[in-house]
Amino acid sequence: MDAPTGCGTALVTPFRADGSLDEPTLYNLAQWQVESGIDWLVACGTTAETPTLTDEEWLRVIRIITEAVAGRIPVWAGATHNSTREAAQRAALAAKIPGVTAILTANPYYNKPNQEGQFQHFRAVAQATAQVSDLPVVLYNIPGRTGTNLEPATVLRLIDAEPNIAGVKESSGSLPQITELLTLVPRSFHVYAGDDNMALGTIALGGAGLVSVASNQIPTDMTAMMHAALANDWTTARRLNRKYFRLLQANFWETSPGPVKAVMAMMGKLEEHYRLPIVPVAPSTRAKLERIAGELGLLVHGPQPEGDLGLF
């Protein structure tokens, strides 16, 4: 399947109060996303609290999402680890799951490898994927979470080295770096915004779309904003961005997905449970989130409880 354009959701992982996966809610969330017109889904990305999932849970989340989607839209499977061997093994496992259409893999976290280390790491993941499937690999540059930045020159080396590396989710937060990347990469290579508040700038520079956090809450309008921008309908794109800008910012007032899940619970989409080290947002943050959600017409319930303390 060709690399998608538009808006993809980095889907949250719902949990029950006892810390177990809330599988029916996850299935329903994926269904709702498809019905809301989202262009693709990301299973087991950063927003999914993936580092807290066991290997078995990681596979189960991907399978539930692909089953719910049933081939209607693409599904990217997150395969990230700070051990190159583990990341490569995960990519190979995920690539075999029916319905998975791409592998998304982030910088190795904690190790802080240099550019050569990242080159060798991503190359190994791409090669492991190619050994079992013809799926594309999308790199994921998120230095704020991993402690290391994937530079444009290294991306170019990877494109030349491994033909299945088809795109990058850019979450560096650096518009100059995104501009450099889009200036240098082949037109067939897709650069996706990894930050909601950088989406319009990335599209204006030639980006292919957005992997969104806010689309967990507002999939229809985030998709409409991306489609408008890609169609050069900047009046519509800017109007939607202005409407939801406070929510896009609020989702990162505290560590994601804390604010995202808090608002989704207010919307009645899930029960608000986390796994440590993620904890519920502070009461002051919750109050402000509820006010914004109310002003945007997202609330379906009254004030929500503060959620459990994420003891699992």
Rank of each mutant, 00 (worst) to 15 (best):
T84F: 04
L93F: 12
E67R: 12
T202H: 03
A106T: 14
T235A: 15
H227Y: 08
G194D: 02
G194L: 06
S212I: 10
L240R: 06
Q127N: 15
A265L: 01
R238W: 15
K269H: 14
R187V: 05
T202P: 07
A77S: 06
R123C: 14
R145Y: 06
A77E: 07
G173L: 00
E295I: 08
R145A: 12
M225I: 05
A199D: 02
E254I: 06
D134T: 15
S83N: 01
N111W: 08
V42A: 07
E290G: 08
K96G: 13
F15T: 06
S188H: 08
I103Y: 13
Q31I: 05
S83F: 03
V281G: 09
T66N: 00
G78I: 11
N107C: 12
L270N: 04
R72C: 03
G37P: 14
D55N: 14
Y244E: 02
P113M: 03
I62G: 09
K261P: 04
G268T: 13
L200V: 07
A68S: 08
L240E: 05
P176D: 01
A224L: 14
D39K: 07
V12S: 03
N197E: 07
N164G: 09
N114W: 03
P163E: 11
E151W: 11
D195P: 04
V279F: 15
V260M: 01
T5Y: 08
A48T: 15
G268V: 07
R145L: 12
R72D: 01
R239M: 13
G99P: 04
Q89F: 08
L158M: 08
R63T: 15
T80W: 09
V34P: 10
G99T: 10
K112M: 03
Q33A: 13
S36K: 10
V34D: 11
G310C: 03
A77W: 01
E56G: 14
F245L: 14
Q33H: 15
S188M: 02
R187P: 01
D22E: 05
T154M: 03
Q33E: 10
P305V: 07
T183A: 09
G173W: 03
W58P: 00
R157F: 10
I103Q: 10
M1A: 14
A166E: 06
T236A: 10
E116L: 13
A94R: 05
S133G: 06
G207S: 09
L200A: 02
V132I: 07
T154Q: 05
A94L: 04
F122D: 01
P152V: 11
G117L: 02
G78C: 05
P152S: 00
S172D: 04
Q304H: 13
T223D: 00
T50I: 07
T285C: 12
A106K: 12
A128Q: 13
A237K: 14
P152W: 02
I203W: 09
V125T: 14
R242Y: 15
T183Y: 01
T179K: 12
G201L: 02
E35I: 06
P259W: 00
G6P: 08
T183F: 02
